[in-house]
Amino acid sequence: MKWTEREIPNQTGRVAVVTGANTGLGFETARALAEHGASVVLAVRDVEKGKQAAARISGDVTVQELDLSSLESIGHAAAELHTKHDRIDLLINNAGVMYTPKQTTRDGFELQFGTNHLGHFAFTGQVLDLLLGVPDSRVVTVSSIGHRVRAAIHFDDLQWERSYSRMAAYAQSKLANLLFTYELQRRLARHGTTVATAAHPGMSDTELIRNVPTAVRLGARLVTPLIAQKATMGALPTLRAATDPAVLGGQYYGPDGLGESRGHPEVVTSSNQSYDVALQRRLWTVSEDLTGVKFPL
């Protein structure tokens, strides 16, 4: 059976927090969850754009300011969510940046690693207590098929201070998303109610390419309509990882088409490196040290 939005179970009574939900995959994820009854929080950097997105969604939708490139903003957002909610059922770590010029976050981290991985690591750690003990609660982190391309965790230069490659830095951040998911699942397993899963959208037509070099971006605009799928399809792996009753902790979902570039969601495998337990644990320890966030596990 090809899994579609029609297979999403009734989400009434469940609270879902979706990062980067004002556009693209995050918006489609939030829309589908709200349409199936969930109370959805759009956790976004630009509150005005978040409000515009919320107005386009039918259902119970609110907006929470969250800048994943700032540990201070992450802390404020987590504190506000604690005042507004006594539980979270679904945390969808979707927001991300791709192929950005060399930049740093407010805390001095390389922008892609700092936003895509460290930001979500810190945010998850500070709201996880709202998920623990909630039946069938899930943390879903969105990775990419790009985690395989020139991917490595450069522990000797995590912030790319000696040299910089947009593609390699992006690949590092997406590999980190998977290492984080698998280590989080191992730590959650003893609790029995919350699970961690991951997903990737294949090749989807979203705004992520806005940061690639101009020549590449122009070429992508010509080719994308031919090979990429719409954001509604790209969001399906995330939605299945978040809502399918048959999902198991530590699973990774992606499209079922050629090269996992497009299609309907199914369980897929990630790179051999992503399953390296020693690497998962080392990255976790480094991430705790860099962010100052300890998980309530």
Rank of each mutant, 00 (worst) to 15 (best):
T23C: 08
R45D: 01
A78I: 01
A43I: 01
E110T: 04
K84I: 00
A32C: 14
D46I: 05
V134Y: 04
G133S: 08
G24P: 10
R106C: 09
V41S: 01
R31A: 07
Q112H: 07
H82Y: 03
F27K: 01
R56A: 12
V18M: 09
T12D: 07
E7N: 12
L91F: 03
D107K: 13
D86M: 06
L131E: 03
Q11M: 15
N93D: 12
D89W: 03
I145F: 05
Q112A: 06
L33M: 15
G13W: 14
P101W: 04
H36D: 06
V44H: 05
I88G: 02
D129M: 07
A32I: 10
G13A: 12
G37L: 02
S73H: 08
S73D: 10
L90N: 05
D136M: 06
T105F: 03
G96L: 10
G75K: 12
N116T: 01
T62S: 13
G114P: 07
Q11S: 15
V17E: 04
D67L: 08
H117T: 12
E28K: 06
G20Q: 03
L132F: 04
A30D: 05
V134F: 02
A43E: 03
Q64G: 08
L111F: 07
A77L: 06
S69A: 14
Q103L: 11
K84T: 13
G108F: 08
I145T: 06
A32Y: 03
T83L: 12
G59R: 07
L68M: 12
N10D: 15
H117E: 02
D60E: 15
Q126S: 12
A34L: 00
A122I: 09
V63L: 10
G108V: 09
H76Q: 15
T104W: 07
G20C: 05
A30T: 08
A53Q: 09
E110A: 14
G114W: 06
F123T: 13
L33C: 12
A55Y: 03
N116R: 03
N22L: 08
Q64T: 11
I92Y: 11
R14C: 07
A79Q: 13
A30L: 07
I145W: 00
D136R: 14
F123E: 13
N22M: 09
Q103P: 01
R138Y: 04
E80W: 11
A30C: 05
T12V: 09
L25I: 15
T19Q: 11
D89L: 02
K49L: 10
A30M: 04
A16G: 01
R87G: 02
P101R: 14
S144N: 13
E80Y: 11
G20S: 04
G24W: 00
V149Q: 13
T19L: 04
R56M: 06
V17T: 04
F109S: 06
A43W: 02
R87I: 00
Q103K: 12
K51A: 07
N22G: 09
G75Q: 12
A38P: 00
D67M: 10
E28S: 01
A53F: 05
E48F: 08
S69T: 09
T105Y: 14
V97G: 07
G50E: 06
L25P: 10
H76M: 12
A21D: 00
G50N: 04
